[in-house]
């Protein structure tokens, strides 16, 4: 379980997070939903120990944590196969086994053997995202942190990758903390939603969310999500008087 308790975080003298509480349970996909720039990525970076909180405690009892960044962050000089196998470097000594496992994961994510040797520059955006997902999941993490990994992709591809990610996490019983500002993405992938808002930011509310496999169901779920009291004010445009002022 990942628990962030009473977290405070200051950056450049500005208090970004205050009294921030969040729990991610095993096997559950928790979506951290909030508008752009509120500090969602900061929360992921704190969870990944890339940042230290100014106050509060973070307890990560998951045995292995992995990360899918907003941009794929692939090694441009390594093939798709080597990029995926890279994540196994600290876990598996045999290069042959690392590559065999990477082949398995790339196949699982829809790659043909002829794509294994391609460099990132030769792959489309969607393929690069899939390589990044394979790299994150090949280590069989108990928790994967996902930072809007599909934000740059078009809707159909995004939807397919959301479903694929969800299925792969389910199959491995991997918990995920998925950051997004997109209601459709939230409805498509979340088991639980944590709504982030305020300034300094904190988790305003959390609620369970049912998975939505088909497209018509997704739009219904998005409409329901948009109507929820928990989201009131979080994504609304600023009041007119605030703009004129």
């Amino acid at each position: 379980m990942l628990t962030l308790s009473n977290i405070a975080f200051t950056l450049g003298g500005r208090l970004l997070l205050d009294r921030f509480d969040l729990t991610v349970s095993p096997g559950e996909i928790t979506v951290l939903l909030g508008r752009s720039g509120i500090g969602k990525t900061t929360v992921l970076r704190l969870a990944a120990e890339l940042l230290r909180p100014t106050g509060g405690t973070i307890v990560n009892s998951f045995r292995r944590t992995s990360y899918v960044f907003q941009e794929p962050r692939l090694l441009p000089w390594s093939s798709a196969l080597d990029n995926v196998a890279l994540a196994l470097d600290p876990l598996e000594r045999s290069r042959r086994k690392r590559r065999a496992e990477a082949e398995l994961w790339l196949t699982r994510l829809g790659f043909e053997p002829s794509d294994f040797g391609k460099y990132p520059a030769q792959l489309s955006g969607g393929m690069q995202s899939r390589v990044a997902i394979a790299r994150a999941l090949i280590v069989k993490p108990e928790l994967v942190l996902m930072d809007e990994p599909f934000a740059a992709l078009d809707f159909p591809l995004r939807r397919q990758l959301q479903a694929l990610t969800r299925d792969l996490c389910r199959a491995q019983n991997t918990a995920a903390l998925f950051v997004t500002h997109d209601l459709a993405e939230t409805a498509a992938i979340a088991d639980r939603v944590a709504v982030m808002g305020g300034s300094p930011a904190q988790v305003l509310s959390t609620f369970a969310q049912a998975p939505t496999p088909s497209l018509p169901e997704l739009w219904v779920a998005v409409a329901e999500l948009a109507q929820r009291d928990e989201l009131r004010g979080v994504f609304d445009p600023p009041a007119r008087h605030a703009i004129s002022r």
Binding site: L109, G110, F111, E112, D115, S124, G126, M127, R130, P156, L157, Q160, L161, A163, L164, R166, D167
Partner: peptide
Amino acid sequence: RCAAPPAAT
């Protein structure tokens, strides 16, 4: 066939 991943199911 490479531009999109396979159907999740």
